[in-house]
Structure formats: structure tokens, C-alpha cells
Design a protein around this nucleic acid. Structure first.
Length: 257
DNA sequence: TATAATGTTTGAAC
DNA sequence: AGTTCAAACATTAT
């Protein structure tokens, strides 16, 4: 059940298998499992919520979706979607999407879009955000092309931190606020990462699943918001809604260009 | 026990 | 033909 930071943790947990040869492969994934037999793992990579196992000339793309799990040097009482065994140790993935991709990861992924990546490019994100002026902030934060790795929890917490109402329109945000959202998407993702590793993620939730606002103590609101229709918590007192000014009834002069 | 949840893809329907 | 949206997938905690 991962957002981007959880996949980075997964990558770290598997580091000891880097350079190791697969001696046994099985699972109910609908791919050609034999491609992995005797193949050596060159590297593990991640792009947002995608976990990538790199071999020579191809790679596996694993997405844990909502309920995916994995076990390292352990098994679960359930048939694995993908089981890889090595001379020493094994790892198993369950309830996930597994795809075998031909070629190299660099030919598929734009690392600059991954909020957890060293190559994350906030200027590029800003440039792309400006093209989404009529979208709501709660939707663009979940756009994996823009903020790869950001999931629903991060979305909720980022918007609370920057005091922006989830239904705000991107085009109505002051430029400084827009940049703050981009900056916080990464900053909060790293906080999420450290807290998750310490098994204390939940206790740091300020708005997500909270009954009252930790700042002003009023009751929070929540609902399924935006075109993404995901559960969103917010404080209507602390989070400003940036929306187009309501028409006054007077006709506005339309500029002719 | 029924429900909802850290997500994405697919294909029907418009 | 392009878009929109419900359904599908699948597991576990509350």
C-alpha cells in the first residue's frame, strides 16, 4: 500500500540482492517468467510508485497498486505473484501488477518528474503546472506525470501544510503559493519516508483522517473531491480556497487580441 | 460483517 | 474520434 516513499524503502530493503543471479523463479504473474531464470539483477530503481528490477536488456515493472505487499526471505500463506530465489535468500511479491518491459528504464521514465529522485526538477513541474490552470490542486498533486510518487495521504498533508483548500484552482494560486506546493510535495514526501521507516507515519498526520484541525481546533471537513474523486480532509478555516472571483453582474470588458 | 482504503487500467458509454 | 467514468482487480483493518 504504497506512495512513492514506500517504494524507495522497498528499494533499500532489497539492496543485498543487487548483482545476484536468479536461481529459481515462479509466480502467477502473466509474463514470461523464464526470462529471469539465471539472469542477474543489475539494479533496482524506482519511479514514483513504480518499482523496477533491472536485468540486461529488460526490466520488471512492479506496481503495488492499493493492496500489494512483499516479503523478503519470508513467504506468505498465499501464492506469490512473483517469487525470485537466489543462492542466498529470496523475495516475493503479492497482489501487484507485474510487467516485463523490453529495453532500458531510461527509455521509459522521466526521472525529473519523481519527487523522491535526485533528478527531481521543480522548475519543470512549475512549467507544466502553469498549463493546468483550470484544474484543482487536489487533482494535479495526484498527477503522476507531474508529481510522480505523490499519493492521497501526501496530497492531503501538503495542502494542509501550505494552507491551501483542495478545491483551489491551480490558475488562481499566487505564483509563490504554487511554488510552495511544488516544494512541499518533495519535502513532505521525504518526511513521509523518514516517519515510515520509524513506523510512526500515522501519528504525524495533521489533517488526513483527523476529526479536528490541529491549528484552530474546529471540526475538519472531508469528502470525495475533484475529478480524481479521492477522500480529502481539510480545514475550511485554515486552508484558503483560491477560486475565480464571482462575477458581479457587470459585463467585463473583453480584450481583443 | 460490511465497508472503505496509501491506485491504476480498461473498455463501455456518450 | 475523443472524452469520461464506472468497473475491475484484490486484501486487510476497522
Amino acid at each position: 500500500m504504497p506512495e512513492g516513499p514506500s517504494i524507495v524503502i522497498l528499494k533499500e530493503e532489497l539492496q543485498s540482492f543487487k548483482g545476484k543471479k536468479v536461481v529459481e523463479v515462479s509466480g502467477n504473474a502473466k509474463i514470461d517468467l523464464q526470462r529471469m531464470q539465471n539472469a542477474t539483477i543489475l539494479d533496482f530503481k524506482s519511479w514514483g510508485k513504480h518499482f523496477l528490477i533491472c536485468f540486461d536488456g529488460f526490466f520488471l515493472r512492479i506496481h503495488l497498486l492499493m493492496f500489494g505487499t512483499y516479503h523478503i526471505n519470508e513467504t506468505k500463506d498465499q501464492a506469490p505473484r512473483l517469487h525470485l530465489r537466489f543462492e542466498e535468500g529470496e523475495f516475493n511479491f503479492y497482489t501487484c501488477s507485474v510487467k516485463l518491459m523490453e529495453g532500458h528504464v531510461n527509455d521509459y521514465y522521466d526521472w525529473e518528474a519523481d519527487v523522491m529522485s535526485d533528478e527531481w526538477n521543480p522548475q519543470k513541474a512549475d512549467r507544466l503546472l502553469k498549463l493546468k490552470s483550470v484544474e484543482k490542486v487536489c487533482d494535479v498533486l495526484l498527477d503522476q506525470q507531474l508529481f510522480s510518487g505523490v499519493g492521497n495521504i501526501i496530497k492531503n498533508e501538503v495542502l494542509f501544510r501550505i494552507k491551501v483548500h483542495p478545491e483551489s484552482l491551480v490558475g488562481e494560486l499566487p505564483a509563490a503559493k504554487r511554488k510552495e506546493m511544488i516544494k512541499e510535495a518533495r519535502t513532505y514526501s521525504f518526511d513521509f519516508y523518514y516517519w515510515k521507516k520509524a513506523y510512526e507515519l500515522r501519528q504525524h498526520w495533521l489533517i488526513y483522517k483527523q476529526k479536528e484541525c490541529p491549528r484552530c481546533k474546529i471540526r475538519t471537513h472531508h469528502g470525495y473531491i475533484g475529478k480524481t474523486n479521492r477522500l480529502t480532509y481539510f480545514c475550511s478555516n485554515c486552508q484558503i480556497e483560491y477560486v475565480a472571483a464571482v462575477p458581479t453582474g457587470k459585463k467585463k470588458k473583453i480584450s481583443t487580441s
